[in-house]
């Protein structure tokens, strides 16, 4: 029991990390689009749990809300509507393997270099890092709000304008047909 109390956070982290990675693998290996969508949902929810474990409750809940509740429902809707069947006869590899392996290795090297170069503090010390504003512990919602609307207001607004442009573009493309 003491072991569970001391390492509960770590156990949960590895559990949800494994679920996230496993779900992501299933998305690209399963042949039925419906199952792929379920696996993607599993990954999204596991990532939300990882956010919660890092005391980033706002980000975690928004992850569930936006990806789990909005985007995945749309995916499922489209998959069910067009009624895709299993894709057994499609070839799994399309002759791009060498290129794909090269790109994957490059990415792996990049992440590896980052991983080696980063100094990781012991986790209990920065437990409240994601819920602190100006050195005062308030809550993750307030911390996210302050960094979005005070510290990084201009980049945030620019990103919003880009998204608006993309949305208008989608509407225009949809009207033409």
């Amino acid at each position: 029991m003491e072991f569970l109390a001391a390492h509960g956070g770590a156990i949960l982290f590895y559990l949800f990390a494994a679920l996230a990675v496993g779900g992501a693998l299933l998305v690209i290996t399963l042949r039925n689009p419906m199952y792929c969508a379920f696996a993607l949902l599993l990954t999204f929810l596991a990532v939300a749990a990882l956010f919660l474990l890092r005391q980033a409750e706002f980000v975690g809940v928004v992850q569930i809300f936006v990806y789990g509740g909005g985007i995945m429902v749309l995916f499922l809707f489209v998959v069910m509507l067009v009624n895709l069947h299993n894709l057994p006869d499609a070839r799994r590899f399309l002759g791009q393997s060498p290129l794909a392996v090269a790109v994957a290795l490059m990415l792996l090297g990049l992440f590896g270099a980052l991983f080696i170069g980063t100094h990781f503090a012991p986790s209990p010390e920065n437990l409240d890092l994601l819920r602190t504003v100006d050195g005062v512990v308030v809550g993750n919602t307030e911390a996210v709000a302050m960094s979005l609307y005070r510290d990084y207001l201009l980049p945030f607004e620019i990103a919003s304008v880009f998204l608006l442009v993309a949305m208008i573009g989608a509407v225009v493309l949809g009207r033409r047909q």
């Binding site: 949902l41 706002f58 809300f65 509740g69 919602t141």
Partner: peptide
Amino acid sequence: NTGLLLVIALATIGVYGLIIGGW
């Protein structure tokens, strides 16, 4: 801290049961 947002997020998750059950 995120009470209301959590409520809405969970309420939207509930629809999967209906979709999956129907499918």
